[in-house]
Design a binder for these strands. Structure first.
Length: 328
DNA sequence: TACACGTGGTC
DNA sequence: TGACCAAGTGT
């Protein structure tokens, strides 16, 4: 692939790029890092308002490092993949401790939550290094342009194609193209600046590149969440720091099992995780179980920082209390 | 390498 | 409506 195609893509990007809030702070490693972590496996539409809120509340990495864990986890609630938030906290404190962000890909890579993609993205975008960030968009666009069915062949092809001195812009141009025209399904090759340079388009089968991943079956599980009221309050707990929804606020309850729960539930909320689905049976109970927890006013549930599973389960329970006949 | 790890949007 | 998918990382 020649430099002309790369130049065409950069021109197209310059002409069409959206005014995303983190683009204005591209040379600010804090803003670049924060946006890249939030964008891991999460859409631009979801991230945009959350990024603004984070930046308003914690304008610098020092401010974020000084914040309480529960405040940061609460602000992350609903964004998913909560290990990202736990790593965000650890990373902010490591950076504040050393005084500033490291400025090379290899040093960035050592920080918690910065894997191969994010370290390369921050190095390229914030520090102008010729690092090669390969996310799912870059992978797909490069696989199509070069006609690579095998994803393992993509990084080398990408590295050869990225124009020297423009890696940050080029990565964003590829990601933007992947999100807009070069989509997984029904790509708009007719509007793509790279159509004439694209092997997959020439073959007439852009969707065949890269080869689809093999999908796995999702098991179904059941669990119990206790619904414990005291006046206009409900008993909440904090989940263990590790594992699923680690460190997040929650309704108390036991382990999730594959066996159906034989209990009389106030509500049953079905929730889909990445690797299994869950029927959470919300069951009334009088006394809190042993252990730490707190009474959360029902009028201040938004401030509890509940992940979506529990936010929806609480909504279902409240609805069922209001309209017992309509309860499932 | 393969799996755990959330959620919301799209078709 | 269920499958697919998203600016991936850690183990």
């Amino acid at each position: 692939m020649d430099a002309t195609a790369a130049a065409k893509l950069l021109d197209h990007y310059q002409a069409t790029a959206r005014d995303l809030p983190w683009r204005r702070g591209e040379r600010d490693p804090y803003r670049t890092w924060l946006s890249e972590v939030m964008l891991q496996q999460t859409t631009v539409a979801t991230v945009t308002p959350r990024f603004r809120r984070f930046l308003e509340r914690w304008p610098t990495v020092e401010a974020l490092a000084a914040a309480k864990d529960e405040d940061i986890l609460g602000e992350w609630a609903g964004l998913g993949y909560y290990a990202r938030a736990r790593n965000l906290i650890a990373c902010a404190r490591a950076v504040a401790e050393r005084g500033s962000f490291p400025e090379t890909e290899s040093e960035l890579r050592k920080l918690p939550g910065l894997g191969a993609y994010t370290a390369a993205a921050v190095a390229a975008i914030a520090f102008g290094e010729d690092a090669v960030p390969v996310d799912t968009n870059v992978e797909r666009v490069v696989a199509r342009v070069f006609g690579l069915a095998n994803r393992a062949d993509v990084p080398a092809a990408a590295k050869a194609w990225f124009p020297t001195g423009r890696h940050g812009d080029f990565a964003q141009a590829l990601m933007d193209l992947g999100a807009s025209l070069c989509r997984p399904k029904k790509p708009e090759c007719g509007r793509c600046p790279l159509e004439a340079d694209c092997r997959a388009a020439a073959l007439g089968k852009p969707e065949a590149f890269p080869a689809p991943k093999v999908k796995k079956e999702r098991p179904h599980r059941h669990g119990v969440a206790w619904w414990i009221r005291r006046g206009d309050e409900v008993w909440l707990v904090r989940r263990p720091a590790e594992g699923l929804l680690g460190g997040m606020a929650a309704l108390p309850g036991g382990e999730w099992d594959e066996a159906p729960a034989m209990v009389n539930a106030l509500a049953i909320h079905r929730h889909g995780f990445t690797h299994f689905t869950l029927d959470l049976h919300v069951v009334p109970r009088v006394e809190p179980p042993p252990g730490e927890g707190w009474w959360q006013p029902l009028g201040e549930l938004d401030r509890a920082g509940l992940p979506t599973l529990y936010r929806r389960a609480v909504e279902a329970a409240l609805k069922s209390e209001r309209e017992p006949r309509l309860a499932d």
